[in-house]
């Protein structure tokens, strides 16, 4: 697949994701602070190609006359920070727990896996809603919360792989020759666990961007006027009939991000075979 030229299935989604991140964090600076301000004279202006558009507002304006391009990019800052941050946190937590459970086994294993099963059985969004209602919803809180929403998958994948690697002949032989646990984990287990977790990370980013969207759509994400893709969509819903573009741009961004994150995960899985079967079994695509 990779013999000739570059692997598009890997680089296209990766490129789009990087582009999205750069655009969201750099774009608003280039557009200047003025575009994000309220301008009641410019309310609900349509995108540039429709009649009635305003100059310098290529994607239209919202109900407060704020530039939709700026709002969408600013909203992306929150959604992406939370999505990527929490996915990274979840994978780190999951790798540690999974290694402990899979490598050392015993009661650690039983406790961790029981916790994972129970955690999965409860509707996460309900828990998150209740928690946000009480402790509030700054970006750090959301990241911690969504880390809790995503730790099970990496934990399970890591555990299964660690369990398998541990019983391989070459690991048993190395242990017999006197290698320490730390050495074995670093030298033999981690190299197999890391690529698989990068795949999991990719899928988790997609899943958590959606959850962050759902939370802020319900009004329980970051507080306005701070934008996030979910709360822009919520603000735009009443104007669906007259100003579809308020909802359209952030919705499009979420969908593109999720598709790219999933595609990246699939491409990486195809690329490294380490743990691909484990992931197939755990992630129902």
């Amino acid at each position: 697949m990779r013999r000739r030229g570059i692997d598009l299935r890997l680089w296209v989604p990766l490129g789009v994701l990087v582009l999205t991140i750069v655009a969201c964090f750099v774009g608003p600076m280039l557009l200047g602070p003025e575009a994000g301000q309220q301008a009641l004279g410019e309310r609900l202006a349509p995108p540039a190609w429709l009649p009635g558009a305003i100059d310098g507002r290529p994607l239209g304006t919202d109900a407060f006359g704020r530039d939709m391009l700026t709002r969408t990019l600013e909203g992306g800052q929150v959604s992406l920070q939370v999505g990527f941050g929490a996915a990274t946190g979840a994978v780190l937590v999951g790798m540690v727990l999974g290694l402990v459970a899979g490598y050392w086994g015993g009661w650690c294993d039983r406790v961790i896996m029981a916790g994972a099963d129970i955690w999965l059985a409860f509707p996460f969004l309900v828990i998150a809603l209740a928690a946000v209602a009480v402790v509030g919803s700054d970006i750090p809180v959301l990241i911690v919360l969504l880390t809790l929403g995503g730790w099970v998958l990496p934990t399970r994948v890591t555990r299964t792989i660690a369990l398998r690697v541990r019983s391989e002949d070459y690991v048993v032989a190395a242990a017999g020759a006197g290698a320490s646990d730390l050495y074995l984990v670093r030298r033999h287990v981690l190299p197999q666990v890391l690529p698989a977790n990068l795949v999991v990370w990719s899928f988790t980013v997609g899943a958590l961007v959606v959850i962050e969207g759902a939370l802020s759509f319900l009004g329980l994400g970051v507080k306005p006027p701070t934008a996030s893709w979910g709360n822009i969509i919520a603000d735009g819903t009443p104007y669906l009939q007259t100003a579809w573009w308020i909802v359209a741009w952030p919705a499009l961004m979420i969908v593109v991000t999720v598709i790219c994150a999933n595609a990246l995960g699939n491409a990486l899985r195809g690329r490294w075979n380490a743990g691909a079967d484990v992931i197939d079994k755990e992630v129902v695509p």
Partner: peptide, 15 residues
């Protein structure tokens, strides 16, 4: 099916 899995429920609902 890929699209169906990538579009969040609330976006689909609004659509």
């Amino acid at each position: 099916m890929t699209l169906a899995q990538a579009v969040p429920t609330f976006v689909l609902g609004i659509l």
